[in-house]
Design a protein around this nucleic acid. Structure first.
Lengths: 193, 193
DNA sequence: GATTTTCTGGACCTTCCGGTCCACTGTGGT
DNA sequence: ACCACAGTGGACCGGAAGGTCCAGAAAATC
């Protein structure tokens, strides 16, 4: 399938429009017709650019959103080399999810995609990269003597990931960022002492 | 709606059958027809016992499953008065979710119910009770001098809840209990030192 | 035993939604 | 100017799923 410049623009418009819709509304049932209406396209176009239909489109949107998750944490996430840097990262995460509110684009996409091959792969890749950054940060802090040497970078970064995920989930159901903050603060405090 | 003994039995059969189906399969799209087939009932019966249809039935199932979550952690969760007790509770949680595997009945129900009033209330009530048990446990440990007094029982219990939720979510997407264990162990270790 | 109420079964309806199809338009290459 | 192919619009289809309805069986009440 050869795409002209116009074609690429339309394809992007569909993906970004769908992503924006998910972010704003966060409603459960997202239909192709919703996306069609919002992006000002037609069924024909959607299936022209995503021949495998809904799954293929949603997977593309999921990849797009997954990228955003990490880039929204930069540059902090990539340079966790001092306590102030950790604090800035913590604040960036809290701010990002507070702004996102109850809606969770990736969550909606994952449950829409269900068992589709490739769906879990996207989230796995995201989590792996995320955790790797944290692990690197902890390792650097330890080498610099800022974190005591008994700390297991692997397990602690895994705990942080779990805490964040759970905190976000609590945000989805309660609307508050309290759990997210508690998890981040407690775990960073654990690193610190 | 007056229910005879037979009627109550059928009603329960529907709820428990649906719950068992969710637990075993964990598939995304659960339909009334699935439940009808599995519980050996008919559409007429489902709407007889749950006049508001799918939402009412699923809400009942959600309540049933939410009860299980806490009772599966007993008696450990109710008596977190020593470090061995905390360890037993930790093991019970890990075992419970390892057994549950990737399927997550409550998760499926919540996303099926979406924004239905009462749905988030069920999960909120569950989380509140859960966290209250942990908070009480931490408070008792502190009174007994087993936990240092600077520990904030509220925040630490919130962090534990977040860690567990996130760990379970990781279990759903990766199939492993590593994140759950890391979160529990790291946070309990934080209490301990 | 009669009657009223509950229980059960399943045919049927309606809506929604993903997906197909085809005709038409624009565009880029020669 | 022509032509091939990408882009666009929207009518239409088929199946799935929630929900309605009613007739008949079973059970409770008197």
């Amino acid at each position: 399938m050869a795409l002209t410049a116009k074609g690429q623009a339309t394809r992007r418009r569909i993906i970004e429009g769908a992503a924006a819709y998910l972010r704003s509304d966060g409603a459960g049932g997202v239909t192709l017709d919703d996306i069609r209406a919002i992006t000002g396209t037609s069924k024909g176009q959607i299936f022209h650019y995503f021949p495998d239909g809904k799954d293929e489109l949603f997977l593309a949107v999921a990849r797009f959103e997954a990228d955003r998750v990490l880039s929204d944490q930069q540059p902090h996430l990539g340079a966790l080399t001092s306590w102030p840097a950790w604090e800035r990262w913590r604040d960036a995460v809290v701010a990002r999810y507070r702004a996102q509110g109850r809606s969770c684009p990736l969550g909606v996409l994952m449950n829409e995609l269900g068992g589709t091959p490739g769906a879990q792969e996207v989230v796995s890749a995201l989590v792996d990269q995320w955790q790797a950054h944290l692990r690197d940060g902890i390792a650097e802090m330890r080498q610099a003597g800022l974190v005591r040497s008994e700390v297991d970078a692997d397990r602690t970064s895994a705990a942080l990931i779990a805490g964040i995920q759970g905190g976000v989930q609590m945000l989805r159901s309660t609307g508050g960022v309290g759990h997210l903050e508690a998890a981040l603060d407690t775990l960073i405090d654990h690193l610190r002492r």
